[in-house]
Every structure is written in C-alpha cells, then in structure tokens.
Simulated scan of single mutants.
Amino acid sequence: MRKSVLIGSFFLITTLLLAGQSFAQRGQFKALIFSKTQGFRHQSIPNAVKALKDMAKTRVFSVYATEDATVFNDEFLKDYDVIIMASTTGEILSDGQKEAFQRFVQNGKGVVGIHSATDTEYDWKWYTKLIGGQFMHHPAQQTARLNVVDRNHPATYHLNEKWLWTDEWYAFKNFNEEVHILLQLDETSYEPGSRDGKSMAMGEVHPMSWYHEYDGGRVFYTALGHVEAAYEDDDFLDHVYGGIWWAAMGYPIQ
C-alpha cells in the first residue's frame, strides 16, 4: 500500500514538473516574428527582433524569429497565437502561403504589424484590410507630437494624452476606416513636406496606431519603430507589448 502511494506520488510530481516545464517553454502564448523584406530593408530590424526576444523573456511568452516564408503553412502555424510582421516590405508570400495566413486569422488568431508592415503586399486586398492601410510616403525623420486618442487599450494604458516622439512619419492610402484609432499624429507639430507641389500631410485625421477585429482574428498595428533607438525605449516597447498581448490573448477591451 505504502509502495503504491509512493509510486503514485512520484508520477504526480513528475507530471506536474513536466507540465510546468512545458508552460515555461511556451509561456503565456507563442509568437512568430516574421521580418522578410523584398523592398526597402530597415536597419532597425535586428534591433526589433532582439527587443522582441528580450521582451519574451521578461513577459513570459515564447517567440520564434524567421524570414523563411515557407513556415506559412497550416501545420507550422497551428502552434502559434500571433504573427508579428516586423518591418516587412514588398511581396513576401506565395499564393499558398497567403491562404495559410488567412486560415490562421480565420481560426481566431492574432496579427501585429510594426512600422513598414503597411509597406507590404500592396496587391493583396485582404492583407490591406487586415493591416489597416498602405504606406504612401513620409518626410524626413523628425520629432512630432502624438495625440493618444484612446487610452483604453493595453497598447496605450501607460501613455499620457500627449506623447513627444521622434520617428519616420508615415502617411497612408487605402486606409481601413473600420479600425479603432489609438494614436494620431498632430500635423501642426512637424513639417510634413511636399511632393510635386502638394503637401504630404493627411489632414485632420492622421492615424499612427490602431487595432480591430478582422475576418475572425485580432489585429494591432503601430507605424512607429523606424529608428533603432525605439527598441530601447520603455514607452514604445510597452506600446508594442500591449498590442501583442491583446492580439495573442484576445481579452475584451475595457
């Protein structure tokens, strides 16, 4: 009898240890960092990948970083909760890979876009709606004022109503007006520049970060993150993590 109890206790402890080890390896959720480029390649991509890997350690989630598009298949993606498009550019996925990406989202998973994720797959209408818009142009890098128009999202809980930030300020076309805007650029606080004699400003509504639910999944995007120094800034990293956490976990926005 005593031997049976000891054996049972051993198996119970072993099971708990293995379960704990499995959680420690996987963490709260599993994120795929994808940073493939077929257009302009940002120098900040290595900084972004390193920062996200460091974030995974401190925030207790697991990551896998790659630029190999063949991972966009049902078998590989089924184990992931969120895909992070880290400054991707250009046409980076085949038709079959696009279909796997769509099924991933339709299965209730999350997508996060950082900076030039909007400079990606211009001819894929589904992706444009998903990510929220398409990069159009930008002026020289400079400091500007961001208005935090919605502080009720994990990506903006920590921010004040005004945020002074230095970056490459995107203007967008084909913007999905169904998204929920989090950050707006104050166009009176910087020089938007001109092209062909026309201002490159967007006007009163100039979104810089947003989120929405789309085709069964959850999507967060931030246009910030061009400069390498961004990935050492606590406010920016908390902004990104809040978006990742929401997209991966899907908890209701309060």
Results as ranks from 00 to 15, higher is better:
2 R>C: 01
6 L>G: 05
6 L>M: 10
7 I>R: 14
8 G>Y: 12
8 G>T: 01
9 S>N: 11
25 Q>W: 08
27 G>Q: 05
28 Q>N: 14
34 F>M: 04
41 R>T: 06
48 A>Q: 14
50 K>T: 05
53 K>F: 02
59 R>T: 04
64 Y>I: 03
72 F>G: 08
75 E>A: 15
80 Y>C: 09
81 D>N: 15
81 D>Q: 14
83 I>G: 10
89 T>E: 11
90 G>T: 00
93 L>F: 15
94 S>R: 10
95 D>F: 10
98 K>G: 05
100 A>S: 14
103 R>T: 01
105 V>N: 09
112 V>R: 08
115 H>S: 03
116 S>A: 11
117 A>C: 03
119 D>I: 01
122 Y>N: 14
123 D>A: 15
125 K>F: 02
129 K>R: 09
133 G>L: 01
136 M>G: 01
140 A>D: 09
148 V>W: 10
149 V>F: 12
150 D>T: 02
157 Y>D: 11
161 E>A: 13
165 W>R: 08
171 A>D: 01
173 K>E: 05
174 N>E: 05
180 H>F: 05
181 I>V: 15
183 L>P: 04
185 L>C: 12
190 Y>P: 08
192 P>K: 04
192 P>T: 00
196 D>K: 07
200 M>C: 04
202 M>V: 00
203 G>Q: 03
205 V>R: 10
206 H>E: 03
208 M>V: 03
217 G>Y: 10
221 Y>A: 07
222 T>H: 11
222 T>D: 03
228 E>S: 13
232 E>K: 13
232 E>N: 12
234 D>H: 08
238 D>I: 01
245 W>K: 14
251 Y>H: 13
253 I>F: 12
253 I>T: 11
254 Q>G: 02
